[in-house]
Write a protein that binds this DNA or RNA. Structure first.
Lengths: 290, 290
DNA sequence: ACCTCCGATAAGCAAAACTGATGTCGTGCG
DNA sequence: CGCACGACATCAGTTTTGCTTATCGGAGGT
């Protein structure tokens, strides 16, 4: 189970072609064929159907393992290399779009920061692999409960703030006048599904026993402004932290009263303990306000 | 970062000797030396001090990654191989000692089961690597909240039951007459630390903000009877699910009223979806009672 | 039926990996 | 003080692995 073989396997599965995968990886088609054969022999199971090239049941299973595995491997390498390398002056910060609240913005230094907005589950991966020095993730949680993050590698998280959660309604909406809303009452409403920008709909559905919260419109992207515009135009409801939901034209932000959840933002650092170098100062600034 | 190199690295670190590691792995000392050199060159950092052989800071970091990494690798292999192999008749069940409550016992078939009691975090690993077909883990959680398990591999968990949590007190204890107890009132009491048998003390300390819950006596082992005997003899308090705490001679089991946590038991299955073969029937029996 | 595309297979070659022998350095003991 | 031994590093030689080029075989389209 050489990682190289694993890597070729996933690219073959992704591209559904031996020759394409060979081109993508800089191998010959022959090498790729041998890689797959070696894997199949090693595991004693057929992994791919040929013509058309598609993963078998066992192959599907292997795919589920391979991604995290390769990610962890890269994370391990990055983490050790980072220890040896000199602490950086520049800081790369990976964040989800809605985690970028006023508190975070206030804590950023005047210069020397590169900011990158990523989908929710790519932030931990970016920190782990060293693509970013620090990460910010947000999500829904019970008050003072930690967020549930995919553990791609040994990461440390610190809470940097909690905010009420609001439902963003167009101001013409029948419920716009309410002082507070229960989530259960909104299960059958039209919702926006914006896995990378807002708060993921799947969480809500899970909290509701797997029912309701059907997506009326799906937005793929990380731009909160696009999301609020869609909500304002009546394409569906969305959940946002209060700071992001307040003051959007033609909308009303109504706090969520039940269940008792908050929008929580967490700082993600690589490895154990506080970060070093330029990251340390920013982390410090974020945490002292918490 | 060949897994082979990683494997030799962890054994060298564990045995604190190149030659010993060579013997353990069936290599020559020369090969081991070259392995370590290759790793250090690849990562561009020194990983071990020689004479005495001990991990450097970077090496420590690598060790943290290497364990889970190799575990996941083994899990991936086991999982795929399991798909190909015929479903087993015999069932191997891994469990924590306190997860083995009356409900679980009632669901077990009359024959064909091998039961193995393991420390808490080794159960998911056993299921992932195929050492066990099914696992049972327990722990403290908010009512109807899932347990937080180390994700060694894609595992599926199902809740199989929740019970009140009790403090086990010797019947001579001043608080023995109480109808209920708050955890906060017990922070400064003498506690038993039994990470593998009872419910881990570290969880309690975490819930209490990192303070209190100092261990008076530490018990290493998985035998609940030993634990209750220690508690009865006044060596310290311990937390147990009600069914395990009830009826222990010379003790009183007082329910925990604050915080509102329950003892939750979960079934751990490998991969996605329900298990197959002999495991399916047992899983079915456990889940229908839930 | 033929051509074409794609994956499997065979042979050859270069690089990697392991072994055995030897070198070097620290340590403990005479 | 020096000598011998234990432990890791290094070197040279051989085996093994892994990749490439070349060729084969079958499925699908024309």
């Amino acid at each position: 189970m050489d990682p190289h073989l694993l890597r070729t396997y996933v690219t073959v599965a992704r591209l559904a072609s031996f020759s394409e995968a060979a081109r993508a990886l800089g191998y010959t088609q022959s090498a790729v064929s041998q890689h797959i054969a070696a894997l199949e022999q090693d595991l004693g199971a057929s992994l791919l159907t040929r013509r058309p090239v598609a993963p078998t049941a066992a192959g599907e299973r292997l795919l589920e393992h391979a991604g995290p595995l390769l990610l962890r491997l890269e994370a391990a390498r990055a983490d050790v290399v980072r220890m040896a390398a000199a602490p950086d002056r520049e800081l790369k910060l990976a964040t989800t779009s809605t985690a970028l609240g006023p508190r975070v913005l206030a804590a950023l230094p005047a210069s020397g920061v590169t900011l990158r907005v990523l989908p929710r589950d790519e932030v931990p991966a970016a920190v782990a692999t060293g693509t970013a020095d620090l990460g910010l993730v947000d999500g829904l949680a019970a008050p003072s409960d930690p967020l549930r993050l995919p553990d791609v590698a040994p990461l440390t998280t610190y809470g940097v703030g909690e905010e009420p959660v609001c439902v963003l309604l167009p101001d013409t909406h029948p419920l716009a006048g309410r002082a507070g809303l229960r989530l259960g009452d909104l299960a059958d409403a039209r919702w926006l599904d914006a896995p990378d920008a807002g708060l993921p709909l799947t969480h809500l559905r899970g909290a509701n026993g797997g029912h309701g919260f059907r997506a009326a419109l799906r937005y793929e992207g990380t731009d909160v402004r696009a999301l609020t515009a869609l909500a304002a135009a009546g394409h569906g409801l969305t959940l946002l932290p209060r700071s992001a939901a307040a003051g959007v034209p033609h909308t009303v932000a109504v706090p969520l009263t039940r269940p008792r959840v908050v929008h929580r933002t967490e700082l993600v650092c690589a490895g154990a303990g506080r970060p070093r170098g330029a990251a340390a100062a920013v982390a410090e600034a974020l945490l002292e306000k918490a």
